[in-house]
């Protein structure tokens, strides 16, 4: 009985730990998806880790909230937030992108959380969208740029 209980506890702890670990910035691994999918450089332009030079998660959060409002054209707005992430939303002419911007003391990372109309993802692998409207990868350069500027500024 004791062994069974210990095994149950061990198994649950391992599973819960892996569940917790998955919602944090992680090195982006490009996986070639075939025809029509975004190139590695386009994908890395959005999803690569952005270093957090401050070493402080609270500063990363501030940088994200400040940076996302300074993008060229339409600003990103806060949809919701939780421990270690900001869910940001961008709207343009009836089309919408949702990004979960995760952060910790070491890095910030953009992950695809969803999209509406033109920005729905046709090929999503984990937290990364390999195929959507071509402007997705172009418009997000501004978000990445402003996040980097904001992080450097703190």
């Amino acid at each position: 009985m004791r062994h069974q209980f210990a095994a149950l506890a061990l198994g649950l702890s391992a599973a819960l730990l892996s569940a917790t670990v998955s919602a944090a910035p992680e090195p982006f691994e490009y996986k070639k998806q075939g025809r029509g999918s975004a190139s590695e450089s386009k994908m890395r332009g959005v999803y690569d880790l952005i270093p957090n030079p401050s070493g402080d998660a609270a500063k990363a959060r501030l940088a994200i909230l400040q940076g996302m409002q300074k993008t060229k054209g339409v600003a990103w707005l806060l949809e919701q937030e939780g421990d270690g992430y900001v869910l940001a939303r961008w709207d343009y002419k009836g089309h919408t992108i949702f990004h979960r911007i995760e952060y910790n003391s070491e890095a910030v990372q953009i992950k695809y959380a969803g999209g509406l109309n033109e920005y729905q993802c046709e090929k999503q692998v984990g937290d990364y969208c390999y195929k959507t409207h071509r402007n997705y990868y172009k418009y997000n350069r501004s978000l990445v740029k402003q996040l980097k500027i904001a992080l450097q500024g703190l």
């Binding site: 062994h3 069974q4 209980f5 095994a7 149950l8 506890a9 061990l10 198994g11 649950l12 391992a14 599973a15 819960l16 892996s18 569940a19 998955s22 919602a23 009836g94 919408t96 949702f98 979960r100 992950k111 959380a113 969803g114 509406l116 999503q124 937290d127």
Partner: peptide
């Protein structure tokens, strides 16, 4: 003991998929 481990793993996978489901929400305008 093996049955308990299997049960825990199944429960854990459900939890992990729940986390991923939460991170891949569907949204409305």
């Amino acid at each position: 003991t093996l049955s308990s481990l299997l049960l825990a793993a199944t429960l854990g996978c459900t939890l992990v998929s729940q986390v991923h489901a939460e991170t891949s929400q569907s949204f409305t305008l």
